[in-house]
């Protein structure tokens, strides 16, 4: 088993929290993990990405080779497209449709959606709205993780255990809210799968 995931977003959006949950869940499942992240200058509102690799055998490279990512999980729609050369022909994009506009020439949303729909069965998530329904806009990353969970190759129970461990220090209420957000994302994925 090997899953190559590219996590994408804008500096400050918290993609490393998603990475931390998947890392922990993979480690709990007895799998090998390599996860490369970006620190330093780009963290200030620039495009950021993390290459996350999970496998049951030795992983050599910290980076994912072009055309071999199973999943691009993006918390911003334009950022999902930035890493397309990494996606394998059967790979999937799971992205939030909430745009983060901090530059003048941001493309029109219709164009972005058009490009997303050119990829293999994209999963488009209105993360902010679903997060609000789950209890707090701050859980949107867990909504995104839920929507992508079945593509990670890790059992959802393991992911929930990891969420519980990572948020435990913040109290039971925060844990419950994040689990709720995660399940909302999972349900949305199931729903979109049935519809298509």
């Amino acid at each position: 088993m090997q899953t190559n995931i590219i996590l994408a977003g804008v500096g400050g959006q918290g993609i490393l929290t998603i990475a931390a949950v998947i890392d922990l869940a993979a480690l709990q499942s007895g799998l090998i993990v390599r996860q490369a992240e970006v620190h330093g200058m780009s963290q200030r509102g620039g495009a950021v990405q993390s290459h996350l690799r999970i496998s049951d055998r030795e992983i050599y490279s910290d980076l994912i080779a072009e055309g071999t990512a199973n999943l691009i999980l993006s918390v911003e729609p334009l950022e999902a497209l930035r890493y397309l050369p990494f996606l394998s022909t059967t790979g999937r994009i799971v992205t939030s449709t909430d745009s983060f506009i901090n530059m003048e020439n941001y493309p029109a949303m219709e164009e972005i959606l058009l490009e997303l729909h050119r990829t293999n069965l994209p999963v488009l998530v209105n993360a902010a709205e679903l997060a609000r329904k789950a209890g707090s806009p701050r859980t949107s990353n867990m909504v995104m993780l839920g929507a992508a969970a079945s593509l990670t190759g890790i059992a959802p129970e393991e992911i929930e255990t990891a969420i519980e461990k990572l948020f435990r220090a913040k109290g039971a209420e925060i844990v419950a809210m994040n689990i709720r957000a995660f399940r909302t994302g999972e349900a949305l994925f199931q729903h979109q799968a049935t519809v298509s």
Binding site: L81, P107, E111, E115
Partner: peptide, 10 residues
């Protein structure tokens, strides 16, 4: 590989 679409901006 799949190309980055032309609408991409930095």
């Amino acid at each position: 590989v799949i190309a980055v679409p032309g609408i991409m901006v930095n």
